[in-house]
Design a protein around this nucleic acid. Structure first.
Lengths: 231, 231
DNA sequence: CCTCGCAATATTGCATTCAAAAGTCAATAA
DNA sequence: TTATTGACTTTTGAATGCAATATTGCGAGG
């Protein structure tokens, strides 16, 4: 195999040698996995990733170790890494935990969220409605994520936010791949409407309950889907 | 600095060269941090850890990256690692999340726990009572942890258990260092009594509420303590 | 034709090496 | 005396090298 061009490419900008490789590698690898460019269950050779990123094995291996700790990939001793395969049970369990965390976030947020933060979430909500009206799934998905993200952030609990982000990232791939059926999609939008109302009214208990059931419903919908979409 | 003896020690057992260094290093480092042998906030030079474990920098650095991802240490670019300093807010936020996770675990466990698992938890509870009677804080602490651990495991939710373990590990150091005052200790034991009852009765809602308040109370007790104990 | 065993190859795990950044400290000037 | 500069040392970030393990391809035997 001819590595010369890659080596040349690396050496051609020696001034960047000490850039923040670790952080950027992590991000790029995560993106590859989340976007599904690295198929779930497929084995990943260090070498090919090194070539792709123009980096030696040392920083790449460090990144792989971190991703393994996060649960995005599995490390098989002496046999390399493979992208974690999410079973239906994994997804259901993760959504259960996420639902609980969001409920806590909602409850906490109601006590401390500012009016301007509520306004921002309302704006995101309206954008999401627009994407729903246009049946733009990708844009909807992103707006939806942004709303939940903002809500968790509004709790003011950094540990909660970090834990939530980690779990959310693990199943983002599956959620992204999962094409909602239209009926469930409409339901989800309706649920979001109620969620926003409860938040605006600062009704923590109600918001918690709504968020929990929202995530439970998402879980049921995913379970009802073809399992191969989760691979 | 003379590294010869260490190098010799390493080379003297080449048959162990390919042992599972990564996993074992992680464990040992975690232990060092949790047991407080590496003071919080103190900078940790890679070199000294390498000598201590008789390992080269490569596997050690991989372990440090993972620990940083777990939140046990902080990595300062080009300036090494330092043991994460837990603020009172960190601990309070973490306990809040842990309480919520335990509540979910309790609720779920009530629906699926077996009688023999309940019996095992009851046995742990009785052991804990014995340690309380003897005022043996260390043994009590361990039994206490074992009970909560078993309860979370009984939920059957692996994602929940893993998330719980991660957060629990992060503040174990603080909890361990925190010497409960006697009144709070007695209260905690009484709370555990109620928790066990609710579990035996499989009253999920009640168990969840008890666990949440148990952790909230632990949080208040820690907050009331001298902050320097948390360093 | 399929299965098993073994050599050739590839890949992983760790050690070592090299380069860049941070840290140290003494000499000098204000 | 104190602040500053600049050479020297230490430490980190990344690349390379080497030994051990896994994988693959091929031929022999059933």
């Amino acid at each position: 195999m001819d590595l010369a061009p890659l080596v040349a490419a690396r050496k051609s900008r020696p001034e960047a040698r000490r850039a923040d490789l670790h952080g950027s590698l992590l991000e790029q690898l995560r993106d590859l996995i989340v976007e599904g460019q690295l198929a779930a269950g497929s084995r990943v050779a260090e070498r090919v990733l090194c070539e792709r990123f123009g980096v030696s094995r040392t920083p790449l291996r460090e990144a792989l170790k971190v991703l393994a700790a996060e649960g995005l990939i599995e490390l098989l001793p002496n046999r390399g890494a493979r992208v974690a395969r999410l079973t239906a049970a994994d997804i259901a369990q993760t959504l259960k935990v996420i639902g609980t965390l969001e409920a806590l976030a909602g409850e906490t947020a109601c006590e401390r969220i500012t009016e301007s933060e509520i306004a921002e979430i309302r704006a995101l909500h309206l954008e999401m409605l627009a994407h729903h009206a246009r049946r733009d799934r990708l844009a909807y998905f992103k707006a939806n994520q942004a709303i939940h993200q903002a809500l968790v952030a509004a709790s003011g609990n950094a540990v909660l936010a970090q834990t939530y982000a980690g779990l959310s990232g693990r199943i983002r791939r599956a959620r992204y791949a999962a094409n909602l059926d239209l009926r469930r999609w409409d339901e989800a939008v309706a649920e979001h409407e109620l969620i926003l109302q409860a938040l605006a009214a600062r009704d923590g208990a109600r918001l918690a309950k709504l968020l929990r059931s929202h995530l439970d419903n998402k879980s049921y919908a995913l379970a009802a889907q073809s399992p191969e979409a989760l691979a």
